[in-house]
Design a protein around this nucleic acid. Sequence first.
RNA 1: GGCCCGAUGGCGGAGUGGUGACGCAGCGGACUGCAAAUCCGUGCACCCGAGUUCGAUUCUCGGUCGGGCCUCCA
Length: 476
Amino acid sequence: MTLSLYDTMSRSKRPFAPKDPSRVTMYVCGPTVYNFAHIGNFRPVVVFDLLFRVLRDAYGDHAVLYAANVTDVDDKINKKAADEGVPIRTITDRYLDAYNADAAALGALRPTFQPRVTETMDAIIAMIGDLIRNNGAYAAEGHVLFDTQAFADYGKLSKKPMDDLIAGARVDVAPYKNDPRDFVLWKPSKPGEPEWESPWGKGRPGWHIECTAMIEEALGLPIDIHGGGVDLIFPHHENELAQGVCSGHGEREYAHYWLHNGFLNMGEEKMSKSLGNVALAHDLLKTYPGEALRWALLAGHYRQELEWTDSLIEQAKSALDRLYRVLDDSARFLAGEPSADGWQNASAAADHAAVRAALHDDLNTPAAFAALFQLADKVRAAVMAKDARAVASGRGLLVEAGNLMGFLTADPQSWFQSGADDDLKSRVEALIADRHAARAAKNWPEADRIRGELAALNVEVMDGPNGATWRIKEQP
RNA sequence: GGCCCGAUGGCGGAGUGGUGACGCAGCGGACUGCAAAUCCGUGCACCCGAGUUCGAUUCUCGGUCGGGCCUCCA
């Protein structure tokens, strides 16, 4: 089965072929760690995590190398550290930990490499040196600038004609620039800012060169896939590409596939911290299960824009509830049956294959979800038909297909009872036992009174043939 | 101004030149002591105009509307 991916460079969907199937490389631009990241920052995290999983599924876990960088040199970090009166590293470590915790809660696997700018400084300086030697960059007044004239293909990725880059845009025109489009590779630090020794004086790297150098060091150039948000196409990725090619480090190649995810919008407005309509993943995770947020982030195709609303999250939660209910019901049914005999449910296997096929079609998550539901329906039907081997096989396939996407990783019971502590659980179990007794005595008013009491605890009880089950109701 | 993307039912959201995915929500029924869950059934759409075609939501052109980038936001 071929994997097809939409490549921004060619503006078309094309079959994916890694340069070396035993060593598939992917790089995605990661966070600047100066605060908790908002949910929009996690769209690429989840999208490219899904791609990471699909690649591992296709080429083998150890054949895929995924690097996502951490920017830990930045003005906002400096300011935060100054405000709190703590070392910069304290800030970056703190928010990197928080970021990784949030990403994990959203079901993202840890990337193979997570390079930091501060730990890649030698490679950055070396690459700048190579660019100068290759006549791709020049030093001026303590700065080193990339010479955009030196790269004939500059603007190719973003499809921007060179002339238009000056005509319409307000480019920062500095006296030390040969051309307004030239961008900084190295610059002097301001007083009090972190600085590193370099052949061009003490200073710090420009943003774009950091990523190029981190790719080079973590994966080696060229790479198979480079990912990030659409907003990074220009100037960031355009500049990365120029640097990578002109440095001569990748046989004049950089990335074979450029993938870009669409923006996440808050209601009508673009989501950004300056507008104040921030939804931190850290906060959302207190209210919603990580899988529900992950589902919501994958509800639309990754290249489309996505409106982030409460309704979207609730629909995602309800969709997952349905799947977990099938898992729960089928597990209860199977509990009283002999263990599976290895027979395979061919119909369910076809749906399982459809999930993978949908993902291989440029990560068509909505189609994958549809196949997941079809598979779930078959498991449900097998439960109703009391066909134990069909249930066992189908359920296994459902879990496997869900896991491929980073879903259905929880035990169904804990999914429905998430948020309940042991104290609440024992109280609920006691009340359910009481209610069971009342129902056995056909004491309906008492049974309903207890159900009301459970409802007051935000617990919903469901009577089934094998006793009552319960779950935590929707968060208020 | 330049470049790029999008417009599908109450909501989210795929896809296709001709039998109207999928999910959430709604409605009717079954089941249930009543509910919930589940099952059966059901209503609801392809921005506008022109063209190509036997036939267009799907292709082409033109509009309208919305969004993104051109400013170290994923």
